Structure formats: structure tokens, C-alpha cells
Measured scan of single mutants.
Amino acid sequence: RKWEEIAERLREEFNINPEEAREAVEKAGGNEEEARRIVKKRL
């Protein structure tokens, strides 16, 4: 699934746990840019 690939990239890029990465992607509706913004806000 594409969402899992996005979550994996976010996890590696921001050094967050898989659960946090998945939550961000879900919140963003699968949009990678939006997920990235969500993760950055949390850091």
C-alpha cells in the first residue's frame, strides 16, 4: 500500500516510530506533503 511507503519514508527521515508515521499519513489522507507538515509540527 502506498500509505505504508510514505509512512516508512517519514519514519526514516524524521526518526519517528512507525505508529507516529502511520498516524500522520492517515490524518493527511495519504498526502505525503501534508503528512510531512503534520510530523514537523509534532517535533
Rank of each mutant, 00 (worst) to 15 (best):
P18D: 15
E26D: 10
R42G: 12
E5R: 03
G30V: 02
L10Y: 00
V25A: 05
I38C: 03
V39H: 01
E20I: 12
E19F: 08
F14C: 03
R42M: 15
R37P: 01
L43T: 08
A21M: 02
E33P: 07
I16N: 02
A28P: 00
A7F: 06
A35E: 00
A21I: 06
R36I: 10
A28W: 00
L10D: 00
R37I: 12
K2F: 13
P18T: 14
V39Y: 00
E12P: 03
R37V: 09
K41Q: 15
L43G: 07
R11P: 01
E13N: 03
G29T: 07
E20Q: 10
R9D: 06
E23W: 09
G29S: 12
E8P: 01
A7D: 02
E5C: 05
I16F: 02
L10R: 00
L43R: 07
V25W: 03
W3Y: 10
E23Q: 13
E20P: 03
E19R: 08
P18F: 15
L10S: 00
K41P: 04
V39N: 01
I16K: 01
E23Y: 07
I38P: 00
E20W: 14
R42N: 14
E32I: 14
E26Q: 14
W3R: 09
L43Q: 10
K40E: 15
E34A: 09
E23R: 11
W3N: 08
E26F: 06
K40P: 02
I38F: 02
E19Y: 06
E13D: 12
K27T: 10
E23P: 01
R9H: 07
E12L: 11
K40N: 08
A21H: 00
E12V: 10
K2V: 14
A35G: 02
R11G: 11
G30M: 04
E23H: 11
R36Q: 06
E5Y: 03
W3M: 10
E4A: 09
R11C: 04
E13H: 05
A35H: 00
E5H: 04
W3C: 05
V25L: 10
N31Q: 08
E32D: 04
I38R: 06
N15I: 05
E8I: 12
L10N: 00
E32G: 05
L43A: 09
K40A: 13
E32P: 08
N15R: 06
G30T: 01
A28Y: 01
I16H: 01
R9Y: 03
L10A: 00
K41R: 13
R42V: 12
